[in-house]
Simulated assay, not measured.
Amino acid sequence: MDIKVDDLTGSKVAELVGEHLQGMTMHSPPESIHALNLDALRKPEITFWSAWEEDDLVGCGALKELDAEHGEIKSMRTSSLHLRKGVAKRLLQHIIEEAKRRGYRRLSLETGSMEAFEPAKRLYASFGFQYCKPFSDYIEDPNSVFMTKEL
């Protein structure tokens, strides 16, 4: 699997980000959706990666710098055609390694509280993420859970 920084201009990446947003809309009320669209992912504080197997886009993920010591995982998504192949695990490993390389002391994330998000929560927990209170600009929301990991 080849994981590379992506400029978010390719049609396959746009489709996968669209799939991600659609999935969030299916499982979360509008006020609880914190997924970013293409324009929001292009902000300078966000690094976006795409994961490829030859010409197939298999997944994506992003790292948002909250401050010099704290990063947030955003836009983790495995293509629906490549589920259960270890894509999310590899992307998460990559993002954690990058966060450590940058000198972050903490890595956090927000995800949904509904059943559809259970696989994601299990993955994060398997990497040592623990449930926490809202961070950054998030507020308590019964449709969200927050997780964090000391690096």
Rank of each mutant, 00 (worst) to 15 (best):
E97P: 00
P119Y: 00
A120D: 03
D67I: 12
R105G: 12
L92F: 03
K89Q: 00
S75L: 06
S80E: 14
L63Q: 06
E65P: 04
G86A: 07
A99R: 02
E69A: 12
E72K: 01
K64S: 05
L92T: 10
K121Q: 00
A99N: 00
L91F: 10
I95T: 01
I95L: 10
S113C: 08
R84Y: 06
L109K: 02
G103Q: 04
H82C: 12
R106A: 07
R77T: 04
E72V: 14
H70V: 15
I95S: 05
S79G: 13
G103N: 05
V87R: 01
S80V: 14
A120L: 11
A62S: 08
L63Y: 04
E97L: 10
I95K: 02
P119E: 01
R105I: 08
I73Q: 01
Q93H: 09
L83T: 13
Y104L: 11
E65R: 13
K64A: 10
E97C: 07
C60Y: 02
R106Q: 03
H94K: 15
L91R: 03
F117C: 05
L92W: 02
M76G: 08
M76R: 06
R102W: 06
R84N: 13
E110G: 11
R90M: 14
A88P: 08
E69N: 07
K85D: 01
L81M: 08
M114E: 09
C60P: 09
R101D: 02
Y104I: 12
I96D: 05
E97A: 14
E118S: 14
A116Y: 15
R106S: 09
L109P: 15
L81Y: 12
L91D: 03
G61C: 12
A62T: 01
V58S: 00
D67F: 12
E115W: 08
L92A: 11
I96Q: 09
L109I: 14
L63E: 00
S75C: 05
M76I: 04
H94D: 10
R77P: 04
M114Q: 04
R84M: 13
A62H: 04
K100V: 05
G71Q: 03
F117A: 10
L66V: 15
G61P: 07
I95Q: 04
A88E: 07
R101P: 01
K64G: 06
R106L: 08
V87S: 06
E118G: 02
A116D: 14
K100R: 03
A62E: 00
E69K: 04
M114Y: 10
V58W: 13
E72H: 00
R102D: 03
